[in-house]
């Protein structure tokens, strides 16, 4: 995913002001495109922005939405937790053991590139219909980039840093906390950001296929029942959620990534 994670550089206030204008213009353009698309394809395929927002205003007040939202959020939360902890631990171990890491890297990269959707029936057969299948599917989407980025971060730590730590006679604990963690944090954050998006994708696809709960189910259900505002509204909710989460993670990256953050790598 070499091109997917460009972290915009720090901006000056003047640039930021023109940036927020740009954002506004983009938003207006997106709304116009949406309205135009609606006029072009008709009421039966895509609801207009006004109608979608009116529908959402009512739907978000009822209990139905929040039940499905909670189901998606719970599956996503577990999948992300398992993927993040497992990915970072495996990545640290593989990064430290050169040979094992070199053996694993192309295998993991190969697994990363296969269309994992096709494996979903197998997950369903193993875990059964329901929550655990969705979680497992989210994990297999998200864990590999987290492993790869963590591994890469540990492998490329500059030996100078470790030598400096030894020269200053830092304890193991101090070395880990003061040297290793800050050195690998930016890359791990990038891995987590990509893992976050892919885990979300995995959980939603899981819900769109063979599920009775969650936002992904609501989209497919809206199509099947010809409830166009429902489908359009749920897509809007998911897009906004994804953009907000990604914005937050980008901000975290800039805040804690430090000067050594390497956007090209992502």
């Amino acid at each position: 995913m070499s091109a997917t994670a460009d972290v915009p550089a720090r901006t000056t206030p003047a640039r930021r002001r023109s940036g927020s204008w740009d954002g506004l213009i983009l938003l207006v353009l997106a709304l116009l495109a949406w309205q135009g698309m609606h006029l072009y394809v008709g009421e039966a395929a895509l609801a207009s922005p006004v109608k979608t927002l009116t529908f959402l205003a009512g739907f978000l007040r009822g209990p139905v939405f929040w039940g499905h939202f909670a189901a998606t959020l719970a599956a996503f939360g577990w999948a992300l937790l398992i993927g993040a902890v497992g990915g970072i631990v495996i990545g640290l171990v593989l990064g430290e053991r050169r040979f094992a890491g070199d053996v694993a890297e192309p295998i993991l990269a190969g697994l990363y590139a296969i269309p994992k959707v096709t494996l979903y029936p197998m997950i369903l057969l193993i875990f059964g219909l329901g929550m655990s299948a969705k979680v497992a599917f989210g994990v297999i989407h998200g864990i590999i980039p987290i492993i790869l980025f963590t591994m890469g971060a540990v492998k490329t730590i500059s030996p100078v840093l470790l030598r400096a730590a030894r020269a200053m006679r830092l304890t193991r604990r101090q070395t880990a906390l003061e040297v290793l963690v800050p050195a690998v944090l930016p890359e791990i954050l990038t891995g987590l950001r990509i893992g976050f998006s892919l885990t979300f994708l995995g959980v939603l696809i899981g819900e769109m296929f063979a599920s009775q709960r969650g936002l992904g189910f609501l989209i497919v259900n809206g199509i099947n029942l010809h409830n166009v505002p429902m489908t359009t509204g749920m897509i809007l909710v998911i897009v906004l959620f994804a953009l907000a989460a990604n914005g937050l993670l980008l901000w975290l990256h800039r805040r804690f990534g430090g000067p050594s953050a390497t956007p090209e790598h992502a």
Partner: peptide
């Protein structure tokens, strides 16, 4: 926009 493009799960647009 490009930086966050791939954070949006695009498959949700497919039914649409």
């Amino acid at each position: 926009l490009l930086a966050s493009y791939y954070s949006v799960p695009f498959f949700i647009f497919y039914p649409l």
